[in-house]
Computed example of a mutant assay.
Amino acid sequence: MTTRHKLVVGNWKMHGSHAANAELLQGILAARPFVAEVAVCVPFPYLSEVAVTLSNSSVAWGSQDCSAHVQGAYTGEVSATMLAEFGCRYAIVGHSERRAFHGESDQLVADKAKAALAKGITPIVCVGETLEQREAGETEAVVKRQLSAVIHALGQCIGEVVVAYEPVWAIGTGRTASPEQAQAVHAVLRAQLAAATPRASDMKLLYGGSVKPDNAAILFSQADIDGGLIGGAALKAADFVAVARAAS
């Protein structure tokens, strides 16, 4: 039996300011030490100040996206090479908001994950179904299709990524998958990964979707849930700290 350390990642989305960031980060740093690994994924303009604030601490940082391209005429894109210069440990790829609002395909998400890994950045690959897909009984097929593209692109390197299951219907809605629903999907993903790499039992699978201090512990206690990708609760230090502590 493998004992996996928990990982809790805050996704700030398009939130933040110099003042708010400083207050939030100081609140997180003041609560150390954490048993779980803790990280924050922040908007691109704030990577420099976050890197300075968190340097020499146990809290890691990362980006909310990563270009599939190394460099070139791609206005508005940010490459993994650039992210690496800011010391990013993680890059979120394939978040449902990117898939929905920016039309990102499974293949593009896979290419982004490959680009991040090539520069030593761990991609947090997001998968998840819409409410319509869940009600149609398509949850397993959808998440397996999304993950399959990444497995195909990375081969044995798939063992180096983090996978986050985020049911679209639970993101920012206040609705949360029950612990049993979340675990069932995580078990499907773990089995799919096990068919692709012997490292599957050591890989971190996160849950995201309205995780809060009052439901984090029961979600994180499930056999295949190794922490969370946290949205709204990551914007308040007290809430994020409580979620991080629940992962221990």
Rank of each mutant, 00 (worst) to 15 (best):
83 L>K: 08
102 H>G: 02
76 G>V: 05
140 E>F: 10
81 T>D: 09
133 Q>H: 14
130 T>W: 08
139 T>H: 11
101 F>M: 13
81 T>P: 00
122 T>G: 01
84 A>V: 00
116 A>E: 02
90 Y>H: 13
114 K>Y: 01
78 V>H: 01
92 I>T: 06
89 R>C: 15
135 E>L: 14
123 P>F: 14
78 V>G: 03
114 K>T: 04
136 A>Q: 09
109 V>Q: 06
85 E>N: 14
76 G>C: 07
119 K>H: 11
97 E>G: 05
136 A>P: 06
91 A>I: 03
94 G>D: 12
115 A>S: 10
88 C>W: 01
134 R>Y: 14
129 E>R: 05
121 I>H: 10
130 T>P: 10
84 A>F: 00
77 E>M: 10
92 I>K: 12
133 Q>M: 05
112 K>A: 05
119 K>W: 00
110 A>V: 15
100 A>H: 15
76 G>A: 12
87 G>T: 03
110 A>G: 15
134 R>E: 08
136 A>R: 13
134 R>K: 15
110 A>E: 04
126 C>M: 09
128 G>Y: 01
90 Y>N: 07
95 H>L: 14
77 E>D: 11
138 E>D: 08
124 I>L: 12
109 V>W: 04
132 E>I: 05
102 H>V: 03
110 A>Q: 02
114 K>N: 04
141 A>D: 14
93 V>M: 08
131 L>F: 11
115 A>N: 03
127 V>M: 09
92 I>W: 14
88 C>N: 07
106 D>H: 12
107 Q>G: 04
79 S>E: 07
112 K>M: 10
101 F>E: 07
104 E>W: 07
121 I>S: 05
107 Q>P: 05
101 F>A: 13
108 L>Q: 14
